[in-house]
Design a protein around this nucleic acid. Structure first.
Lengths: 308, 308
DNA sequence: CAACGTTACGCTCTTCGTAAAGATG
DNA sequence: CATCTTTACGAAGAGCGTAACGTTG
C-alpha cells in the first residue's frame, strides 16, 4: 500500500467519484489514478467503489470505512509535515482562517494586523463563508482555524474555544417610527420588514428561536451574508436591519440610527474552532492568543488534551 | 514521504535506536533503512534522531512527535488492511489474545473451544504475561484483545469492558492449622508464609492494599505468575497459597484444602481491553461475546463510540 | 458522440542489495 | 577490534505520461 494511493482515493471521492477531475486536481494523468485505484482494490481484495460497467457510481460499505481511514492517515501525514516545518523554520508557513463576514470585517482586523507584525513571514489566508461552511472547512483541513458563532461548536471533531460575547442591534434610517415610542419590543419589530443575515433563520439559531418562542413571525424581506450589504439596503429604506452590534460604526454609518436590542435577544458567543487531531504551528497558537487572550498556548493544549 | 519510511522509523525506535536490528526485523538491508531515515529527515528538514557522530543516541523533540504520528499512521494502515480482510474473507484471519495465566488456564478454555468451532479458519494465538505486559501488548497492537484484572483498565488508549467478578481463596495442605479455629482473618493469615501471584504486590493492587489498610504486613515467601506453580509449592508445605477462586479445582486438587476468603478481600473485576482506535474483525466481536455475553457487537460499538 | 474509464507501452526515477569504507567505544 | 553507520554502484521494479481502445448515457 502506498500513500499515493490513499491520496488518490481521497481525491476521487472528493471530486464526486470522478477520476478525471481527481487526476486534474492532483496534477497527474488520469490513467495513473485509475491504475492506482485498481491496485489498492486488488491488494485489499475487494471493491472500494461500486461500478456500473466502467463508471463509478458509489462507495461500497468497506469502501466507506477505507476512505474514512485514508482521510485519517492523510491528516496525520499532514501533521508530520507540519512538525517538520515548525521545527525547521518556526516563523514561516501558512495560516488559513475561515470565518464569517462580520468577524472578518469588524473583529479580526486588529488581530490580523498584530499577527502580521509578529509573524511577517507567515502567509495569511482568510476564507469567508457562512457558519456551516466555516465549520466544514476546518473539519476538512482546508482551514486551520475557524471563527464563527453558529454551528461550529456542534462539530464533534473540532475543539471550540469561546472567544467573546456579543449582541445584536437594530439599524434604521433616521426618523424611522421605531426611534420613537419608548423601548423596542419584539412585537413592534415584527411590524416592519426585516433585513438580516441569511443564516440567522436556518436551523433553530438564537434569533429565529427568540421570535418563535414569543409566538411571533418576523417578516424577513431580504437576507445577506454581509453586514455592509444589509446596511446598504436599510439605507435605501427597504426595511429594518438586524445585525451584530459591532457591525454598526457610529462614525461611518451616519445615515443610520442604531437601536440597542440587548434586552430582546440573549448574548451570543463567538467560538474559535480547530481540529482536535491537528498539529498546531507555533504561530497558530500566537493567533489564537491574539483573538482570545485568555487562551495562551498552555491553555489551548490543556483544552486539546481534555477534549481528546 | 513514503509509508516505508514511517515503518522504518517506527522499527528503529522500537529496536532501541539500532538501525541494524531494525533492518533485521524488517527483513531488509541495513543500508536501505539508513538511507530512508536520511531521506525523511532531509524531506522534513530536521533531525529526527540525536546522533553522536554516526551512532543514534536519542530522539530530538520534533522526532518524538513525528514518531508518535508515524505510529498512528501505521495503526490506521493496519486498520485499512483489516477492513480489506474482513470483507474479502470474513471468516479467515488471526486473533491474538493477551492474558494472564489464570485466565488462560481457567476461564478461557470454554470460550476458546467455542470460538474455534464457530470460526475454524481463524488462527488463534494466546500470549501470556503479567497484567501490565497484557496491557502493553494490546496498546502496541501485538495483541488484538487483552484480558486481565489489574492495570488494563488504567490505559487511556484502551477501551475496557467488564467481563466478570471473582474473588480469591486460600489453599493449604490438609490438616493445616488454618483449617481449624473458626473463620479466617487477615491477622491469622499473616502468621504464615504466603505464596501468591508475583504481581499481587506491585503497585497498590487490591490484595496489597487490603493488607496495608489493616496495618498488616504479610510474609510473602514466594511469588509466581502461575496458579499451578503456586499450588505445587503449597503442596510441598512451603506456605499458604492465595489465588483466584477459579484456580482451585476440587476434583483435581485433592491434596489441597480450600478456604474461602470472600469476607477478607473485595471482589475483583476482570476486564477485556481493546484499542479504541482499532478496527475489529467480525470474529473479534464474536470472541468478545463468548467471554462476556452481555457485550454483543452493538454494545461494543456503542462503548467504542462513547469512549471516542 | 461526448465524457469517462481501462489497457498498452516506453521512459524515468526510486529502491534494494552487495560490497566497501568510515566511526565509535 | 567488534559493532554500527554511511557511501557507492549496479540491477530490479514501480510510477508516470502518451496514445489507443472500450463503455456509458
Amino acid at each position: 500500500m502506498k500513500l499515493h494511493q490513499l491520496r488518490y482515493l481521497h481525491e476521487v471521492v472528493k471530486q464526486g467519484l470522478n477520476i478525471t477531475s481527481a487526476a486534474d486536481a492532483l496534477y497527474t494523468s488520469q490513467p495513473g489514478v485509475s491504475k492506482q485505484i485498481q491496485l489498492i482494490e486488488e491488494e485489499l481484495g475487494l471493491q472500494i467503489f461500486k461500478r456500473n460497467g466502467k463508471r463509478l457510481t458509489g462507495l461500497t460499505v468497506p469502501g466507506q470505512q477505507i476512505v474514512m481511514l485514508a482521510d485519517k492517515v492523510m491528516r496525520d501525514i499532514e501533521n508530520i509535515k507540519r512538525v517538520g516545518e515548525e521545527f525547521s523554520d518556526v516563523e514561516t508557513g501558512t495560516l488559513t482562517i475561515a470565518t464569517t463576514h462580520t468577524q472578518a470585517r469588524y473583529k479580526l482586523p486588529a488581530a490580523v494586523k498584530a499577527f502580521m507584525t509578529n509573524y511577517p513571514r507567515v502567509k495569511l489566508n482568510i476564507h469567508q463563508g457562512n457558519p456551516s461552511q466555516v465549520a466544514e472547512q476546518v473539519e476538512s483541513g482546508e482551514a486551520d482555524i475557524g471563527i464563527a458563532t453558529e454551528s461550529i461548536s456542534e462539530r464533534e471533531s473540532l475543539l471550540c474555544l469561546p472567544c467573546y460575547h456579543w449582541n445584536r442591534c437594530v439599524v434604521v434610517p433616521h426618523e424611522h417610527p421605531l426611534l420613537q415610542g419608548g423601548p423596542l419590543t419584539l412585537e413592534k419589530l415584527v411590524n416592519y420588514p426585516l433585513i438580516t443575515y441569511d443564516f440567522a433563520f436556518t436551523g433553530g439559531t438564537l434569533v429565529s428561536k427568540t421570535f418563535s418562542d414569543a409566538g411571533l413571525t418576523p417578516n424577513v424581506v431580504l437576507t445577506a451574508i454581509d453586514a455592509d450589504v444589509i446596511k446598504t439596503y436599510v439605507t435605501l429604506g427597504l426595511g429594518v436591519g438586524l445585525l451584530a452590534n459591532m457591525a454598526y460604526d457610529a462614525d461611518r454609518d451616519t445615515h443610520l440610527a442604531k437601536i440597542d436590542v440587548d434586552h430582546l435577544f440573549a448574548d451570543s458567543t463567538t467560538y474559535l474552532g480547530v481540529r482536535k487531531d491537528a498539529f498546531l504551528r507555533g504561530y497558530m497558537y500566537g493567533f489564537i492568543e491574539l483573538i482570545a487572550p485568555h487562551f495562551n498556548r498552555a491553555a489551548v493544549n490543556q483544552a486539546l488534551k481534555i477534549a481528546d
